[in-house]
Design a protein around this nucleic acid. Structure first.
Length: 104
DNA sequence: CTCGTGACGGTAT
DNA sequence: TATACCGCCACGA
């Protein structure tokens, strides 16, 4: 078992169900790094594609995609989420009340 | 071993 | 409400 910090984070992200999203802070907390939201971002930044992780289901605490609006990655992530049924408000925000993953 | 870098978050202004 | 700044830590060169 790979148990590095990043691997731990990937493990949590992998558990996010289709149709739901989670915030960086939430993932950090679940992974055992309370308050270390940045680590989650760093981990996903260096995420190997072959790991098959639903990285697009991770957004920031404001319910928005963390990529710069207008970037190709921003649009890519948004399309992936919409395909899973996630709805965006006109301002590009996701209603966390409705779509945030409630981990047990 | 040292240094720079990076998908955030909360608080202050 | 928007913008600015600081703190946190792992990983690769």
């Amino acid at each position: 078992m790979s148990s590095s910090s990043y691997q731990k984070i990937y493990q949590i992200v992998k558990n996010i169900p289709c149709g739901k999203v989670a915030t960086y802070g939430q993932i950090a907390d679940l992974a055992g790094f309370p308050g270390q939201a940045r680590l989650v971002g760093y981990a996903l930044n260096s995420l190997p594609e072959e790991l098959d992780i639903p990285w697009h289901r991770v957004i920031n605490s404001q319910g928005k995609i963390s990529f710069a609006g207008g970037s190709g990655w921003y649009e890519y992530q948004m399309s992936l989420l919409e395909t899973e049924g996630i709805e965006f408000s006109p301002s590009g925000k996701i209603d966390l009340k409705q779509f945030q993953w409630q981990a047990k």
